[in-house]
């Protein structure tokens, strides 16, 4: 399946950067998923888990707790800007 570049960036550094099939997050308008070649989009994130589905060379899914921030999509690239975020512990 086609992939999109995903960057999860926080002030203390890059938390995740790589190709993935899908990113799911919650914005002010509700839950939204980004597949490859999504149209340009800017949204404010709500504090909510963010899922990176099928990252290339990784596990099936990566989940992060994101404490607000923004998501910007353009040119097949999803950039998540979070003032604070961390990898969710596996249940």
């Amino acid at each position: 399946m086609a992939t999109t570049q995903v960057d999860l960036v926080t002030p203390s550094g890059m938390l995740f950067s790589g190709q993935a099939e899908m990113v799911v997050c919650r914005t002010a308008g509700g839950d939204i998923a980004f597949l490859a070649n999504h149209m340009p989009y800017v949204g404010a994130l709500a504090p909510h888990p963010l899922r990176v589905v099928h990252p290339v060379g990784g596990p099936d899914e990566l989940a992060f707790d994101v404490e607000g921030g923004f998501v910007e999509v353009s040119e097949n690239r999803v950039v998540v800007l979070a003032s604070s975020a961390q990898r969710q512990r596996q249940p």
Binding site: T27, P40, V42, G43, A44, F70
Partner: peptide, 27 residues
Amino acid sequence: NTAFEFEPDPAEILDRLLPRWLEAEVY
């Protein structure tokens, strides 16, 4: 030329973005 879709609308995004952006700059 890229038409962005904004959620919520641009003005509100800016209101929310400003403090975050200031934080990044001040930091």
